[in-house]
Protein backbone atom coordinates (compact mmCIF):
# COMPACT_ATOMS: atom_id res chain seq x y z
CA UNK A 1 0.00 0.00 0.00
CA UNK A 2 2.99 2.25 0.27
CA UNK A 3 2.62 2.86 -3.43
CA UNK A 4 -0.66 4.65 -2.98
CA UNK A 5 0.80 7.43 -0.89
CA UNK A 6 3.72 8.10 -3.14
CA UNK A 7 3.84 9.22 -6.70
CA UNK A 8 7.59 8.77 -6.79
CA UNK A 9 8.48 6.61 -9.80
CA UNK A 10 11.88 5.75 -8.33
CA UNK A 11 10.29 4.14 -5.29
CA UNK A 12 7.53 2.30 -7.05
CA UNK A 13 8.94 1.51 -10.42
CA UNK A 14 7.15 2.82 -13.46
CA UNK A 15 3.97 4.50 -12.40
CA UNK A 16 1.59 1.83 -13.68
CA UNK A 17 -1.24 0.46 -11.64
CA UNK A 18 -0.55 -3.09 -12.79
CA UNK A 19 0.32 -5.36 -9.94
CA UNK A 20 2.19 -8.02 -11.89
CA UNK A 21 5.44 -6.15 -11.92
CA UNK A 22 8.20 -8.50 -10.75
CA UNK A 23 8.31 -8.93 -6.99
CA UNK A 24 11.76 -8.29 -5.71
CA UNK A 25 11.48 -9.45 -2.12
CA UNK A 26 9.10 -12.38 -2.54
CA UNK A 27 10.66 -15.81 -2.00
CA UNK A 28 10.70 -18.19 -4.93
CA UNK A 29 7.28 -19.69 -5.62
CA UNK A 30 5.57 -17.77 -2.85
CA UNK A 31 2.19 -16.52 -3.90
CA UNK A 32 0.11 -14.11 -1.95
CA UNK A 33 -3.30 -15.64 -1.50
CA UNK A 34 -5.45 -12.91 -0.07
CA UNK A 35 -8.23 -10.74 -1.39
CA UNK A 36 -6.89 -7.35 -2.34
CA UNK A 37 -9.72 -4.84 -1.98
CA UNK A 38 -7.93 -2.19 -4.03
CA UNK A 39 -7.07 -1.65 -7.66
CA UNK A 40 -5.89 1.42 -9.47
CA UNK A 41 -8.08 2.40 -12.37
CA UNK A 42 -5.63 4.95 -13.75
CA UNK A 43 -6.68 8.24 -15.22
CA UNK A 44 -5.74 11.77 -14.36
CA UNK A 45 -7.40 14.95 -13.10
CA UNK A 46 -6.52 18.59 -12.91
CA UNK A 47 -7.89 21.79 -11.40
CA UNK A 48 -6.90 25.42 -11.78
CA UNK A 49 -8.35 28.36 -9.85
CA UNK A 50 -8.70 31.72 -11.56
CA UNK A 51 -9.73 35.15 -10.33
CA UNK A 52 -13.46 34.52 -10.68
CA UNK A 53 -13.65 30.95 -11.98
CA UNK A 54 -12.36 27.45 -11.37
CA UNK A 55 -11.65 25.00 -14.15
CA UNK A 56 -11.56 21.29 -13.44
CA UNK A 57 -10.73 18.54 -15.89
CA UNK A 58 -10.29 14.78 -16.05
CA UNK A 59 -9.83 12.15 -18.72
CA UNK A 60 -12.60 9.60 -19.22
CA UNK A 61 -10.59 6.38 -19.52
CA UNK A 62 -11.16 3.64 -16.95
CA UNK A 63 -8.30 1.14 -17.07
CA UNK A 64 -7.36 -1.95 -15.13
CA UNK A 65 -3.97 -3.36 -15.92
CA UNK A 66 -3.43 -3.11 -19.65
CA UNK A 67 -7.18 -3.28 -20.37
CA UNK A 68 -9.42 -0.34 -21.06
CA UNK A 69 -12.66 -1.08 -19.22
CA UNK A 70 -14.47 1.83 -20.82
CA UNK A 71 -13.66 5.02 -22.66
CA UNK A 72 -16.57 6.95 -21.12
CA UNK A 73 -15.97 7.12 -17.38
CA UNK A 74 -16.44 10.62 -15.93
CA UNK A 75 -14.17 11.62 -13.04
CA UNK A 76 -15.79 14.99 -12.37
CA UNK A 77 -18.98 15.19 -10.34
CA UNK A 78 -21.24 18.08 -9.45
CA UNK A 79 -21.90 18.04 -5.72
CA UNK A 80 -24.73 19.23 -3.51
CA UNK A 81 -27.44 20.31 -5.93
CA UNK A 82 -31.06 20.26 -4.73
CA UNK A 83 -32.05 17.47 -7.08
CA UNK A 84 -30.38 14.35 -8.42
CA UNK A 85 -29.60 16.02 -11.75
CA UNK A 86 -27.45 18.58 -9.87
CA UNK A 87 -28.82 21.47 -11.91
CA UNK A 88 -28.13 24.09 -9.24
CA UNK A 89 -24.87 22.64 -7.89
CA UNK A 90 -21.99 25.03 -7.19
CA UNK A 91 -19.21 22.62 -6.23
CA UNK A 92 -17.33 20.05 -8.30
CA UNK A 93 -15.47 17.03 -6.95
CA UNK A 94 -12.92 15.14 -8.99
CA UNK A 95 -11.73 11.71 -7.90
CA UNK A 96 -9.08 9.45 -9.35
CA UNK A 97 -7.50 6.25 -8.11
CA UNK A 98 -9.73 3.29 -7.25
CA UNK A 99 -12.97 3.98 -9.06
CA UNK A 100 -15.33 2.21 -6.64
CA UNK A 101 -13.94 4.15 -3.69
CA UNK A 102 -14.15 7.35 -5.72
CA UNK A 103 -17.80 6.70 -6.47
CA UNK A 104 -18.56 5.91 -2.83
CA UNK A 105 -16.76 9.04 -1.69
CA UNK A 106 -18.67 11.19 -4.16
CA UNK A 107 -22.03 9.81 -3.08
CA UNK A 108 -21.23 10.33 0.58
CA UNK A 109 -20.18 13.91 0.12
CA UNK A 110 -23.18 14.60 -2.07
CA UNK A 111 -25.60 13.13 0.48
CA UNK A 112 -24.03 15.22 3.24
CA UNK A 113 -24.32 18.39 1.13
CA UNK A 114 -27.95 17.55 0.38
CA UNK A 115 -28.72 17.07 4.07
CA UNK A 116 -26.99 20.37 4.81
CA UNK A 117 -29.19 22.09 2.24
CA UNK A 118 -32.29 20.44 3.72
CA UNK A 119 -31.40 21.47 7.27
CA UNK A 120 -30.12 24.98 6.61
CA UNK A 121 -31.98 25.94 3.46
CA UNK A 122 -28.85 27.07 1.68
CA UNK A 123 -26.02 25.40 -0.21
CA UNK A 124 -22.77 24.50 1.57
CA UNK A 125 -19.81 26.82 1.02
CA UNK A 126 -16.74 25.32 -0.67
CA UNK A 127 -14.73 25.98 2.45
CA UNK A 128 -17.16 24.02 4.65
CA UNK A 129 -17.48 21.28 2.08
CA UNK A 130 -13.69 21.03 1.83
CA UNK A 131 -13.33 20.65 5.58
CA UNK A 132 -16.09 18.02 5.65
CA UNK A 133 -14.47 16.04 2.84
CA UNK A 134 -11.26 15.90 4.84
CA UNK A 135 -13.17 14.47 7.81
CA UNK A 136 -14.86 11.87 5.64
CA UNK A 137 -11.52 10.71 4.30
CA UNK A 138 -9.88 10.65 7.72
CA UNK A 139 -12.73 8.65 9.23
CA UNK A 140 -11.50 5.80 7.07
CA UNK A 141 -7.87 6.32 8.06
CA UNK A 142 -7.23 2.61 8.60
CA UNK A 143 -9.14 1.35 5.56
CA UNK A 144 -8.78 4.38 3.34
CA UNK A 145 -10.70 5.44 0.30
CA UNK A 146 -7.97 5.00 -2.28
CA UNK A 147 -8.90 8.18 -4.09
CA UNK A 148 -7.09 11.38 -4.83
CA UNK A 149 -9.77 14.03 -4.54
CA UNK A 150 -9.78 17.61 -5.73
CA UNK A 151 -12.64 19.93 -4.79
CA UNK A 152 -13.35 23.06 -6.82
CA UNK A 153 -15.72 25.97 -6.51
CA UNK A 154 -15.92 29.67 -5.74
CA UNK A 155 -15.15 30.99 -2.25
CA UNK A 156 -17.19 33.51 -0.27
CA UNK A 157 -15.55 36.38 -2.16
CA UNK A 158 -16.29 34.81 -5.53
CA UNK A 159 -12.68 33.84 -6.19
CA UNK A 160 -11.79 30.48 -7.66
CA UNK A 161 -10.98 27.88 -5.01
CA UNK A 162 -9.23 24.54 -5.41
CA UNK A 163 -8.72 22.13 -2.51
CA UNK A 164 -6.59 19.03 -2.99
CA UNK A 165 -6.45 15.91 -0.81
CA UNK A 166 -4.46 12.79 -0.19
CA UNK A 167 -6.35 9.52 0.39
CA UNK A 168 -6.48 9.95 4.19
CA UNK A 169 -7.67 13.53 4.32
CA UNK A 170 -4.71 15.89 4.44
CA UNK A 171 -5.77 18.89 2.43
CA UNK A 172 -4.83 22.40 1.46
CA UNK A 173 -6.17 25.17 -0.71
CA UNK A 174 -4.06 25.73 -3.82
CA UNK A 175 -3.94 27.68 -7.04
CA UNK A 176 -3.71 24.53 -9.10
CA UNK A 177 -3.26 20.77 -8.70
CA UNK A 178 -2.95 17.69 -10.87
CA UNK A 179 -4.00 14.29 -9.51
CA UNK A 180 -3.82 10.64 -10.49
CA UNK A 181 -1.69 8.57 -12.81
CA UNK A 182 -0.16 11.42 -14.78
CA UNK A 183 0.07 13.87 -11.89
CA UNK A 184 3.84 13.65 -11.95
CA UNK A 185 3.80 14.59 -15.61
CA UNK A 186 1.28 17.42 -15.42
CA UNK A 187 2.17 19.09 -12.11
CA UNK A 188 5.64 20.40 -13.15
CA UNK A 189 4.04 21.82 -16.29
CA UNK A 190 1.44 23.58 -14.16
CA UNK A 191 4.08 24.90 -11.76
CA UNK A 192 5.78 26.49 -14.70
CA UNK A 193 2.72 27.74 -16.56
CA UNK A 194 0.35 28.74 -13.74
CA UNK A 195 2.67 29.77 -10.96
CA UNK A 196 5.47 30.86 -13.36
CA UNK A 197 8.07 28.78 -11.50
CA UNK A 198 11.55 28.97 -13.03
CA UNK A 199 10.53 31.86 -15.23
CA UNK A 200 12.74 34.92 -14.93
CA UNK A 201 12.83 38.33 -16.48
CA UNK A 202 15.37 38.11 -19.32
CA UNK A 203 18.70 39.92 -18.68
CA UNK A 204 17.63 40.89 -15.16
CA UNK A 205 20.86 39.62 -13.61
CA UNK A 206 22.97 36.60 -12.82
CA UNK A 207 22.34 33.83 -10.28
CA UNK A 208 20.41 35.03 -7.24
CA UNK A 209 20.07 38.45 -8.75
CA UNK A 210 17.77 37.02 -11.41
CA UNK A 211 14.34 38.54 -11.12
CA UNK A 212 11.34 36.22 -11.12
CA UNK A 213 8.67 36.83 -13.67
CA UNK A 214 5.82 38.65 -12.03
CA UNK A 215 2.85 36.40 -11.20
CA UNK A 216 -0.55 37.30 -12.58
CA UNK A 217 -3.81 35.41 -12.56
CA UNK A 218 -4.54 33.62 -15.82
CA UNK A 219 -7.62 34.37 -17.88
CA UNK A 220 -10.22 31.71 -18.51
CA UNK A 221 -9.27 31.21 -22.15
CA UNK A 222 -5.60 30.85 -21.21
CA UNK A 223 -6.48 28.21 -18.64
CA UNK A 224 -8.66 26.30 -21.09
CA UNK A 225 -5.77 26.07 -23.55
CA UNK A 226 -3.44 25.04 -20.73
CA UNK A 227 -5.73 22.23 -19.65
CA UNK A 228 -5.98 20.79 -23.14
CA UNK A 229 -2.19 21.01 -23.62
CA UNK A 230 -1.54 19.36 -20.25
CA UNK A 231 -3.72 16.41 -21.14
CA UNK A 232 -2.43 16.08 -24.69
CA UNK A 233 1.02 15.79 -23.16
CA UNK A 234 -0.08 13.26 -20.55
CA UNK A 235 -1.85 11.13 -23.13
CA UNK A 236 1.33 10.95 -25.17
CA UNK A 237 3.45 9.64 -22.32
CA UNK A 238 1.09 7.71 -20.05
CA UNK A 239 -0.78 4.58 -21.13
CA UNK A 240 -3.56 4.96 -18.57
CA UNK A 241 -4.63 8.42 -19.75
CA UNK A 242 -6.68 9.10 -22.85
CA UNK A 243 -10.01 8.67 -24.72
CA UNK A 244 -11.90 11.80 -23.67
CA UNK A 245 -11.47 15.00 -21.71
CA UNK A 246 -14.23 16.18 -19.42
CA UNK A 247 -13.93 19.85 -18.46
CA UNK A 248 -16.08 21.80 -16.02
CA UNK A 249 -15.90 25.54 -15.58
CA UNK A 250 -17.39 26.90 -12.36
CA UNK A 251 -18.40 30.57 -12.47
CA UNK A 252 -20.93 32.69 -10.65
CA UNK A 253 -23.43 31.75 -13.38
CA UNK A 254 -23.17 28.05 -12.65
CA UNK A 255 -21.24 25.12 -14.03
CA UNK A 256 -20.50 24.64 -17.73
CA UNK A 257 -19.46 21.21 -18.91
CA UNK A 258 -17.63 20.29 -22.14
CA UNK A 259 -16.36 17.02 -23.53
CA UNK A 260 -13.36 17.00 -25.86
CA UNK A 261 -11.77 14.05 -27.60
CA UNK A 262 -8.33 12.75 -26.61
CA UNK A 263 -6.17 10.15 -28.35
CA UNK A 264 -7.62 6.66 -27.90
CA UNK A 265 -4.37 4.67 -28.29
Amino acid sequence: MAAMFSQNPLMNGPNYSISDTPRINAPEGAREHRFDPYTDNGGSTLAIAGADFTIMAGDTRLASGYSINTRHYPKLFKIGGTTADQKDATIVLSVVGFAADGEALKERLDTICKMYRYRHGKPMSVKACAQRLSTILYQKRFFPYYAYAILGGLDEEGKGAVYSYDPVGSYEREQCRAGGAAASLIMPFLDNQVNFKNQYVPNSGEGHALQERERRPLTRSEVEVLVKDAFDGAVERHIEVGDGLQIMAITKDGIEEVMLPLKKD
Binding site: A84, E107, T111, K114, M115, Y118
Partner: peptide, 10 residues
Protein backbone atom coordinates in the same frame (compact mmCIF):
# COMPACT_ATOMS: atom_id res chain seq x y z
CA UNK B 1 -38.82 10.28 5.43
CA UNK B 2 -35.95 12.39 4.12
CA UNK B 3 -33.40 9.80 5.28
CA UNK B 4 -35.37 6.96 3.73
CA UNK B 5 -35.63 8.77 0.40
CA UNK B 6 -31.91 9.53 0.32
CA UNK B 7 -31.11 5.96 1.26
CA UNK B 8 -33.37 4.59 -1.43
CA UNK B 9 -31.85 6.89 -4.01
CA UNK B 10 -28.39 5.76 -2.93
Amino acid sequence: MKQQCLGHRL
